[in-house]
């Protein structure tokens, strides 16, 4: 376990499955937590989205394309995408000290890498597009929820994109492949496999794993995660259309 994750620690359960075969939350193996998305919730930002994914509450703002400071950061041929993943002090069970730590810096980086392939950055040379992610409450799986919401905020800002980006985590708990791990499952399961895809062509823009899986298990987990992304993608579409409901 990552040292920096200690502030998220939940009490360790004896097993991660109930006697009836369901997960402790009552979910089936491949059942997602309830997800709610809302687009366009901030006034100042050029694009914004709010996602509630289980108990995760995450708000994302997009600013840009705008002038970059300092100027030497400008790329002559395209826009620079910057990402900042930040957890509110009250978002975790034990108060998190404000400010970036190594975990949030890595997450900012992988989230940026997950979003970049969908954007047409070459249309705005020398500018910057900022994606600011604020985790207001966390319950495991914040990076995939952040990516899902960030892609909505980007689309809401009117930026040109090849596709949305949709993300979900698969994993392995008590020897079984499951989808959408919550905090306890993430912490005490055997493996966590967050992925992000661009749904139209099912191209994978984020894949990370920590823990252990056999190649066969990985294949199953990946397949199930991609399937679940289609379901989440439908919700994303609805959320975007809801913003401009007539």
């Amino acid at each position: 376990m990552n040292e920096e994750m200690s502030y998220m620690l939940e009490k360790k359960p004896e097993k991660l499955f109930r006697d009836d075969g369901k997960r402790l939350s009552g979910r089936d193996l491949f059942e997602l937590r309830p997800i709610k998305m809302k687009v366009g919730i901030l006034e100042n930002a050029d694009g914004s989205a709010f996602i509630e994914w289980g108990k995760n509450k995450i708000i994302v703002a997009v600013y840009g394309p705008r002038e970059i400071h300092p100027k030497h950061m400008a790329i002559p041929t395209q826009a620079r995408l910057r990402c900042r993943y930040n957890m509110a002090a009250f978002s975790t069970s034990e108060r998190k000290k404000p400010g970036p730590d190594r975990r949030s810096i890595e997450l900012s980086k992988v989230i940026r890498e997950a979003l970049v392939p969908a954007l047409l950055l070459e249309k705005f040379p020398k500018t910057v597009i900022d994606v600011f992610i604020e985790v207001l409450e966390s319950e495991g799986g914040t990076r995939v929820a952040s990516i899902t919401a960030a892609s909505l905020a980007l689309a809401d800002s009117g930026l040109p994109m090849k596709d949305l980006v949709t993300a979900v985590a698969a994993g392995k708990i008590d020897g079984k492949i499951v989808l959408d791990l919550d905090s306890a499952e993430d912490m005490y399961g055997e493996a966590d496999l967050p992925i992000a895809i661009m749904p139209r062509r099912k191209e994978i823009t984020l894949i990370q794993m920590d823990g252990k899986m056999t190649p066969q298990e990985l294949r199953l987990a990946l397949g199930k995660a991609i399937e679940a992304c289609q379901q989440i993608y439908e919700m994303q579409k609805r959320a975007l259309l809801e913003r401009y409901k007539i």
Partner: peptide, 24 residues
């Protein structure tokens, strides 16, 4: 043909266009 931006789809004669709803 695929959309690249959020907007209103407009099809006129032989032309397809998107009227953007937001952007810089």
């Amino acid at each position: 043909i695929y959309a690249e931006r959020i907007g209103l789809l407009n099809v006129e004669n032989n032309k397809v266009e998107i009227v953007p709803l937001k952007g810089k």
